[in-house]
Write a protein that binds this DNA or RNA. Sequence first.
DNA 1: AGGTCAATCAAGAATGATTCCGGATAAAGG
DNA 2: CCTTTATCCGGAATCATTCTTGATTGACCT
Lengths: 166, 166
Amino acid sequence: MEKKSVIQRLKEKGLKITGQRLAIIDVLVEHGHLHPGASFIYREARKKQKSLSLSTTYATINEFIRYGIIKALEFDERENRCEGNLDEHINLVCDRCGKITDYPVSAYVDRTDVAKTTGFVITGNRCEYYGYCRDCSNGREGASPAAAPRKHRSREHFREFLSSRR
Amino acid sequence: MEKKSVIQRLKEKGLKITGQRLAIIDVLVEHGHLHPGASFIYREARKKQKSLSLSTTYATINEFIRYGIIKALEFDERENRCEGNLDEHINLVCDRCGKITDYPVSAYVDRTDVAKTTGFVITGNRCEYYGYCRDCSNGREGASPAAAPRKHRSREHFREFLSSRR
DNA sequence: AGGTCAATCAAGAATGATTCCGGATAAAGG
DNA sequence: CCTTTATCCGGAATCATTCTTGATTGACCT
């Protein structure tokens, strides 16, 4: 993710280069590998751009998604996250600390085959593996579990489910 | 998905066989291939069991998930769905009508490899392809788009994103 | 430098699937 | 039939996200 090319694309689309957008771009460039969520981006971008509201943060993220600059990683049980890596890969999602790691993988399904056999026309995909990252599976309480807040107050059963399924 | 075996498992776990649970099992057995969501299950199960509340429907679905009878397919932008097929496969999700189709695929990632190279211990996965099912891509207004209600009022931009990404 | 209009802000209300609560009901075993 | 206690119900609560409204700002072009 190159700051210059992002700015370039915004200009091409006729969007204005504002301080707020620049601050958010900076966060995406610097912390993109963390797959930051809206709250993280908001908190971090504010350090450089004091006048930034949460609604603008959401709006900007959505702009960037709309223009294909980033992708959204949606979750039901936790905050959504941003994906800056548009290359083909899968995501390793830690169920304990919420860390998301990219793992490169070549295409696993042939879109033409699917279209021929089922009539289904593929336009996008999402592939994730859940489990525990190195730190969390080692018992080392690496990143704080608070990094993966849940949308609903209690979802312990779901945690159980996550850790028992395969 | 066998009705008898589900009941068997509930008994083994010491759970009571109630009319509500039986009605929900029936829906899962009859309409499991549709990957029904909570609202569908609720609506359908009520035809047989008048005294069934939505909260009980959710609670029961969560019981079944906890005991590995079904899996959850979570979405942020639409209602979650239930997956009764526990065999390895991917899901083809139609962005227009919301239909979800199973597509069998052999393992695409070697868990041992991932653990060796990244230290990440995989416990579960999720793989989905988005696009348009045969009916919807043919312009035949097959299943009504209303079958895929969104959680938030307007997500047109997200639709755009879904249909433009690859 | 000035004008235009997109972008932003604040502050809040709305959204909607899902979860939680306290009191009522009924399944299962004796 | 009776007791126990899991289950159920109705309704309130939850929370990330979206959407208001109206006023202000500031990016960009001429």
